[in-house]
Amino acid sequence: MLNYIWLGMMVISLIAGIFTGRIDEVTDAAINMSKTAVEISIGLIGIMALWLGIMKIAEKSGLISIIAKVVKPITVRLFPDVPPDHPAMGSIVLNMSANILGLGNAATPLGLKAMEQLQELNEQKDTATNSMVMFLAINTSSVQLIIPAAVVALMGATASQIFLTTILATLCSTIAAVIAVKFFEKMKRFSVENAS
């Protein structure tokens, strides 16, 4: 799937760029975005190190397994392939909590830690497991209780009006994504054997 989307986007960009006369912009975008990608990754190092360090302390002190136990009834349903007491469950829950509280900076390191732990359970290392896709879908549909700081800055006092609508919309998108994952994972064309 990624092969087609990736190539498709670039081919469409090339054709559209020629057609709209924006071929120079396309060139610039390609070069600048490759730099941006590295800057984003390098910029993550410090924050990753900070949260992974704190996480390790939380893990060693048993905090993570306590949290994982509390939310077990929900997580075992969402992630049936992950053993309920596996450390991945703790990271998944912490990542979701960070997202709900709007702590984007903390959510990414915790999410990547969870991915690493889910990968330990994966038999085919280049292919996503059902749990990985579920975890990703929950992350991309963004369960969030705190309105992003950027929106508050832009909207001013009006930002409080969109509090309820944002929660309702994000609930709908998360539920839809979870149902879609559960539905698709049983389909043959998305099976691990046919994976693309």
């Binding site: 799937m1 990624l2 989307i5 990968q119 994966n122 290392k125 280049d126 292919t127 996503a128 990985m132 896709v133 990703l136 879908a137 994504a177 879609a180 994952v181 698709f184 994972e185 389909m187 998305f190 099976s191 691990v192 994976a195 693309s196």
Partner: peptide
């Protein structure tokens, strides 16, 4: 992971 399976459609 490069084979994303149903992640994008979902």
């Amino acid at each position: 992971v490069v084979r994303s399976r149903h992640a994008i459609p979902a």
